[in-house]
């Protein structure tokens, strides 16, 4: 059986909130290392990969592999009933029909309990190759959100170009064009505002802004976001969580004919 308790429901609420508009039905794959999720969006352009490691929970218990087939719209409805600071416990039997969720507000001695019906989801699992990326950009997640939102007003695509001078986001549309350039920036007193560019070779790729703005719904999960780029492979956008847990998005590039 699965039993996994989070000190605050916040993490799980925000993670589900971040992916629910991109993927609808997906399996939460539980085993002794934690709870993982991999799902593609309907048009097979983007892939979500989430890992909540066992260490993120206390306690965490899962003796065998359990796949929880969940409709994320339904899960969102249930999670809306959880206070951000409630403790959240997920429980399921070995071959479950339901996922049991318990929210506890310890200060108020209030306990709420929900059973969410599960479904059988036959999902294709993709192998994500280990990639040495040509460029890895770490930047404030709020800044990335602002850039994607601002450029969305200009065009439906953005070209991300990483060079030794910095990273440039540029868009060209019917009304004109725009660009934002960020240079490496490491303020000692404000680590959350760090912009770091690790570059093995210059790279430029074009992506759909519709997907990138969608990924930015994960912004509340982490102050920093990591963009990993290599020529002709999907972009990886990573929101790192405590203890090595993560929420990653992969986005296929736009390719010239």
């Amino acid at each position: 059986m699965l039993e996994a308790r989070l000190d605050t429901a916040n993490l799980f609420k925000s993670a589900v909130d971040a992916i629910k508009d991109l993927v609808q039905d997906c399996n939460f794959d539980c085993n002794d290392s934690g709870i993982a999720l991999q799902a593609m969006d309907n048009s097979h352009v983007a892939l979500v990969s989430m890992m909540l490691k066992a260490e993120a929970f206390s306690p965490f218990r899962c003796d065998r592999n359990i796949a929880l087939g969940v409709n994320l719209t339904s899960l969102t409805k249930v999670l809306r009933a959880a206070g951000r600071d409630d403790t959240l416990t997920l429980k399921a039997e070995d071959a479950p029909d339901v996922l049991n969720l318990v929210f506890e507000a310890t200060a108020q001695d209030r306990i709420s309990e929900y059973d969410l019906k599960l479904m059988d989801i036959d999902q294709e699992h993709l192998g994500i190759p280990d990639t040495e990326y040509a460029a890895t950009i770490s930047m404030p997640s709020a800044e990335f959100k602002r850039i994607t939102t601002d450029l969305m007003a200009m065009s439906e695509s953005v070209t991300i170009e990483a060079t030794k001078d910095g990273v440039k986001f540029s868009s060209t549309g019917d009304i004109g064009n725009g660009s934002i350039t960020l240079r490496q920036h490491t303020p000692v007193d404000k680590p959350n505002e760090t912009v770091e560019i690790e570059l093995s070779e210059p790279v430029a790729l074009t992506f759909s802004l519709k997907y990138l703005t969608n990924f930015c719904k994960a912004q509340p999960l982490s102050n920093q976001v990591k963009l990993c780029l290599s020529a002709e492979v999907p972009l990886m956008v990573e929101y790192g969580l405590e203890g090595g847990s993560y929420l990653r998005f992969y986005l296929a590039p736009k390719i010239g004919d």
Partner: peptide, 14 residues
């Protein structure tokens, strides 16, 4: 003219 790629052409089934 640019075309949107598919994630499945990069990541194979495992």
């Amino acid at each position: 003219k640019v075309k949107q790629g598919s994630i499945m052409s990069f990541f194979g089934s495992s």
